[in-house]
């Protein structure tokens, strides 16, 4: 405990963090908050709406691309599908590697590869998420019930049929629910990566901050908030609809 406190104090000193700076900053924060009122689109509403649409499509396409890449890897990394230890250890390790790089880093890499714009954003989201998605998928597959698999096997079904009928119907609703969750969180990520130039509403947010148009910054933040909340509600309904069909 004492050691942790010492490390904490040392960190504060080294990074030049002092209460006075926070105090002065607090005043600044108040001023900015004041300048934000009332939020205003400054006549750029349609432009911002378009950018928001772009952000949503980055999130959507990125999630879909990630899912497409993750699906085969999810099955390869599942112990009950691929008996070969080498294959699934290899699949697991490569997924972990991809997963450990943050979306912002991926965005910066892809901007250098394919140039500024939404395409880089889509690729960034896809590359950072395919690892986590594949891992989650493989775990869903591994916890699937073995009984339907044996049922299909005992009826004379081959390997692919046991996957198609024994596993896929079990894991599909779980996959769908995972995808919806990733889409939700990617709407937030897509805003952030817009700031480094990967397209979407984040770019406008950053520009308006630089030119100190705080009313428009506030407006943009509210737009993102409303969108994320709306997606939240819609995806929760969809998830329930997908999972809860039992007993209908």
């Amino acid at each position: 405990m004492a050691a942790a406190l010492a490390v904490y104090a040392a960190g504060l000193m080294m990074l030049d963090i002092s209460p006075t700076r926070v105090w002065h900053g607090l005043g600044q924060l108040g001023t900015i908050a004041g300048l934000m009122l009332p939020p205003s689109a400054g006549g750029h509403f349609l432009l911002y709406l378009d950018a928001l649409g772009q952000t949503l499509s980055i999130a959507f396409l990125g999630t879909m691309l990630a899912a497409g890449v993750a699906l085969p890897f999810g099955f390869l990394a599942a112990r009950n599908v691929v008996a070969n230890r080498m294959v699934h250890v290899l699949a697991r390790r490569s997924l972990d590697t991809v997963r450990s790089i943050d979306v912002l880093v991926w965005a910066l890499i892809w901007i250098n590869v394919v140039g500024l714009g939404p395409f880089a954003g889509v690729l960034a989201i896809a590359s950072s998420d395919c690892g986590s998605l594949a891992k989650l998928m493989s775990e869903a597959i591994e916890t699937a019930d073995r009984k339907p698999v044996e049922g299909v096997l005992a009826s004379g079904g081959g390997r692919l049929m046991t996957i198609r009928f024994g596993l896929v119907p079990q894991v599909l609703p779980i996959f769908a629910s995972q995808l919806l969750y990733f889409f939700e969180s990617n709407t937030r990520s897509a805003t952030i990566i817009g700031i480094v130039g990967a397209g979407g509403i984040g770019l406008h947010l950053y520009e308006q901050m630089r030119v100190l148009e705080w009313q428009e910054v506030a407006f943009l933040i509210l737009m993102v908030l409303a969108t994320v909340a709306a997606i939240d509600v819609v995806s929760r309904r969809l998830r329930l609809a997908i999972i809860g069909r039992r007993g209908a």
């Binding site: 009984k147 044996e150 005992a154 009826s155």
Partner: peptide
Amino acid sequence: AMIFQQFNLIGRLDVLDNVLMGRLT
């Protein structure tokens, strides 16, 4: 053909599809 204690059907598929598993070969 095998019949199991726990039936080993595919819960999320309908009854007809389950029976048709017997035609896979």
